[in-house]
Design a protein around this nucleic acid. Structure first.
Lengths: 294, 294
DNA sequence: TCAATCATTAAAATTATTTTCATGATCTGC
DNA sequence: GCAGATCATGAAAATAATTTTAATGATTGA
């Protein structure tokens, strides 16, 4: 699967001291090598460019550039392999190289999307979509990170002409909740499911007779217990006290699913509106000399 | 899963005659290109090496060798995918069953995260992180969907004590931009890279002497051309007119990487602040009877 | 110890890539 | 429809990267 890296590892012992250094370096950080010139690599290994070229030739490569091209392909291969089986969250710790941070971040986000999808209860999801489609008004509650998710959902719903609010201010959320009716839906978003402001708002919405949906992590939590339809976004990322990255991605993923579900359910009704709002924005841009959307 | 090849195909129409020939050739036999020198390729396409290099630069590559390396990786990727039957971007159409929507959404989000990661130029990324860490002040510009991303970044930066603004109002963005200095950084976020308000704000920031970073899709676009450091989030999802779901996920993914990169770079400085802000929020909750964060 | 071989490198030669610059084409505003 | 500007293009110069050469030093086995 990775012929060159494999060969490097296998023949390592048979190599001379300098050559071994080169092999070691390539094996330890192949993805770095791809971005390096032969000079840099030689320097990093404490040897000369000439030795590096000979090294390449010894492995039946055309030369150094050829090594880079082949390595690039092998990295893509192995990463791919690892990824396709990978579903685990990785911790992000201090001062590790950028490439590791990127890798870990990717693993976490991919895992949280996959997990969220696999946790989905299709029946409940369908129910939620039906409720949202039928709602006269939709209220979205969330603070801090979850407020971002609420705002995102808000923007989408506005585009299909839904009567919808997503106040950032938690007092306004409660105020709004108390004006809901039985034909309305309230959606509470909170990773932990224990955010007081959001709980208060949802409780108020319940009192007003609105149907309720919660969007929380997959755990026993107050919001999920309160809601008529609890939905779950998974994120078990490690070291996450330092900001909830993957959880937010997972929640947005769920929001997208809800939104697309609504579009599909009410295709004839919503999609024309979406198209129109898209074209209106586009025309506005054109009239000002630019093009395309945000 | 093959961002460059995809971008080539997508932008084909916008290219000049000579450039189109190059794009055609690369698309028709990418695996040949990997073994060719720039001269050969130019000859094959009936054009000059100069045009080929410029062509590479237009697609945000370092140069011709960079194209070969990236292409090599993409070829390996796609082969791998075909073999393992992995899914890439899928269209979402009307009235298909919910389970299909969920599947397509998942495929799109996963693909856009993977693509974004594979497109990352580590060097530029590192530069961007260094700039952000060193900045006296950070300004974030974005409207509509991109405003959500800006807000998200804003929340993160605030938590580590960065002096930072992210006005939703585009006039305020320009006002803020005009007060920047040479020690500040402006980040412009826009999927298309052609949002007028955002371009104006970034131009203004440039005039003020601030360093500039753009966060756009992988294409030739105004913002990327303007910025000192252009960063790219890929999303080639089909049916994009119906809302930019995956692109936003990809951008948030990049924001997370930038943020974690900053944390790692300045571990001693930022992480204690993060921990503190986390604990302060937690204590506030506890004193009111709840627990955990949003 | 002395050849003989091998690994190694500095520097030269070669090759590849990029930049510059001049040219011609196309587009813009008058 | 015409001057001026802008853009694309390729030839050639400049630069950069890689490879080869040739000389040196180290190691090994008689």
């Amino acid at each position: 699967m990775a012929p060159i890296l494999h060969a490097l590892a296998q023949e390592q012992e048979r190599l001379s001291q300098q050559e071994r250094r080169i092999a070691d370096f390539i094996l330890s950080s192949p993805s770095e090598v791809v971005h390096m010139g032969i000079k840099e690599l030689a320097e990093q290994c404490g040897t000369s460019p000439a030795t590096v070229t000979r090294f390449c030739k010894a492995f039946h490569l055309k030369g150094y550039p050829d090594l880079k091209v082949k390595l690039s392909a092998e990295i893509a291969h192995t990463e791919m392999q690892e990824r396709s089986g990978m579903s685990s969250y990785q911790d992000i710790v201090a001062n590790n190289p950028l490439s590791q941070i990127v890798e870990a971040m990717e693993a976490n986000h991919l895992a949280s999307i996959r997990d969220t999808t696999s946790l989905l209860d299709m029946e409940r999801l369908a129910q939620a979509i039906r409720l949202l489609c039928a709602a006269d008004r939709i209220d979205l509650y969330g603070v801090a990170t979850s407020s971002i998710v609420a705002q995102d959902f808000y923007q989408k719903l506005i585009r299909i002409g839904k009567n919808c609010t997503a106040f950032a201010d938690s007092h306004m959320q409660i105020t709004s909740a108390s004006t809901l009716s039985g034909r309305d839906v309230a959606v509470a978003i909170s990773y932990s499911g224990e955010t007081l402001e959001t709980i208060d708002a949802l409780a108020c919405a319940k009192d007003s007779g609105a149907a309720t949906i919660s969007l929380t992590s997959y755990s026993s939590n107050t919001l999920a217990a309160m809601a008529d339809i609890p939905l779950f976004a998974s994120s078990l990322e490690k070291g996450m006290r330092r900001g909830d990255m993957a959880s937010r991605i997972a929640q947005l993923h769920l929001v997208d699913i809800l939104f697309m579900g609504m579009n599909s359910e009410q295709f004839g009704q919503y999609v024309p509106k979406l198209e129109q709002s898209y074209h209106n924005v586009q025309n506005y841009r054109k009239s000002r000399g630019g093009h395309f959307q945000a």
